[in-house]
Design a protein around this nucleic acid. Structure first.
Lengths: 112, 112
DNA sequence: GTAATATACAACCAAATGGTTGTATATGAG
DNA sequence: CTCATATACAACCATTTGGTTGTATATTAC
């Protein structure tokens, strides 16, 4: 079902990018609507350049893309990357289920 | 379905903790089997203290817990925290779906 | 054409991160 | 009891991160 895997370094970038409340807010907003970089910059109590850096971090992680529209840049959230991360976490949950299943099998074997 | 929410600061810690290949490996191993801190330390090309710090970061994030067994510490992965993160990402995907639905509705309205 | 707007990017700085070594403490083995 | 093992934790250091300001460039408005 997974089309292409994310490299370890890409995974690092994605989680790193999500480890900041401002960047998570940017992801939420850009998934939900078309937003310009300056719309984002107006929303947070920091400089335009700081917001630009946050967007750049998200872009490097594949969580948003920017498209030019005249002098403006439209930032769009990338649901595919979110889905990739969820799939990765699902694989982790499966490891836990394996462990539980082995334990169940062991207990069943112990109590005939 | 969610019992209690993670605070923004907790979410930061969880994503931060997952943004490192060694820590992700520790999470996978501890979800799947019982592992001592020294088992982990033997696996990675870094000092015992460095691995200890990684485990501490994961513990602060709620991704693992440590229980004492004599002088040993058993590290266990916490699937609930993984599930919380997945739910959070699902909420993000829902924002995107809302956007798509609005777009569909608009297009349907435009073509009678 | 000129002025205003939107973005890009470099240089700088404080704080956080991720590693190290060294020392201390608690438990198990013999 | 003594020695080895398992862990904890402090102090230190280089690099990265997350912010700043300042300057440059491209596009739109008038």
């Amino acid at each position: 079902m997974v089309v292409y895997e994310l490299s370890e370094e890409q995974v690092n970038k994605v989680f790193r990018a999500l480890a900041d409340a401002t960047r998570r807010d940017i992801v939420r907003r850009t998934l939900n609507e078309e937003v310009r970089v300056s719309d984002l910059a107006a929303s947070y109590d920091m400089s335009f350049a700081a917001v630009q850096k946050h967007v750049a971090a998200l872009e490097a992680a594949g969580l948003v893309t920017k498209i030019a529209r005249g002098r403006e840049r439209i930032v769009r959230g990338q649901p595919d990357t979110i889905r990739h991360v969820k799939e990765l976490l699902t694989a982790y949950e499966d490891l836990w289920r394996q462990r539980v299943n082995r334990l169940d099998a062991f207990l069943a074997d112990q109590t005939p």
